[in-house]
Amino acid sequence: MNKTVNQKAWFLVLPVLILVGFSAVIPLMTVVNYSVQDTFGNNVFFWAGLDWFRDMLESERMWNALGRQLVFSGIILAIEVPLGIFVALNMPKKGFWASFCLVLMSLPLLIPWNVVGTIWQIFGRVDIGLLGYVLAKLGVNYNYTQNVIDAWATVIVMDVWHWTSLVALLAYAGLQSIPDAYYQAAKIDQASRWKVFRFIELPKMAGVLMIAILLRFMDSFMIYTEPFVVTGGGPGNATTFLSIDLVKMALGQFDLGPAAAFSLMYFLVILLISWVFYTVMTNLDKRDGV
């Protein structure tokens, strides 16, 4: 069959290219531009090659921030995923209470990041915050502005409060797609509650859980607003995660070169991890489809 050749069709893609160019490629290139140059002010730049990248790779500060970041993402995933599954398993399957739970659980997801931060910043204050005040009255020595453990606990609990719903809702959607016949067959086969979870519910949820983990990892890896509002990265640098550190460097110290190199590497790390996730997921799918 002869196909009509019409190269003019390429023009149809042009608007998208322009849009992506202005919204992503050009800003990214300015960052690339900064990352390979140095300046002594007055808007005069000179070539610095890969010096900033080498500096950043040798910088203890960046490795520390990366370490904190990984620990943070690891902890919130370890809490939110099992907790989300647990919540989803215990939600009503249908009727009024099912809708009620869904609405209730969506609420935290709808609150803007900085508001979440503010809520917890006030909530945890020892003088006027409900949580801080009650803890203090109970004799717990809690102070997130001075104590590293308290600061971490606050930031983690805040993230769990904010985002467990997302995991729960996705897991719930996965559970809802399981036909009744599976549960009936499991009863006939006398499978225990654990086996029902292990062999029916978990496999059926695997797909959505992968997505949930990927989303939560990416999002927590780039977290900025909430911990910034609550702890400002402190006490000291205890809760200074990658984004917070980056902003400190770029805007606080106006070290554009290092900050640009930093953000490019940050970007590459996220890209790399997403790619690994994607590969693992598609391989899982392939294994399924034999």
């Binding site: 016949a181 599976y182 009936q184 067959a185 006939i188 062999f199 496999p203 399924d288």
Partner: peptide, 15 residues
């Protein structure tokens, strides 16, 4: 102690 087979085929996918 009854065995029942359903109209809708049920298998445990991961087994």
């Amino acid at each position: 102690n009854i065995a029942q087979v359903f109209q809708f085929p049920v298998v445990y996918d991961t087994m």
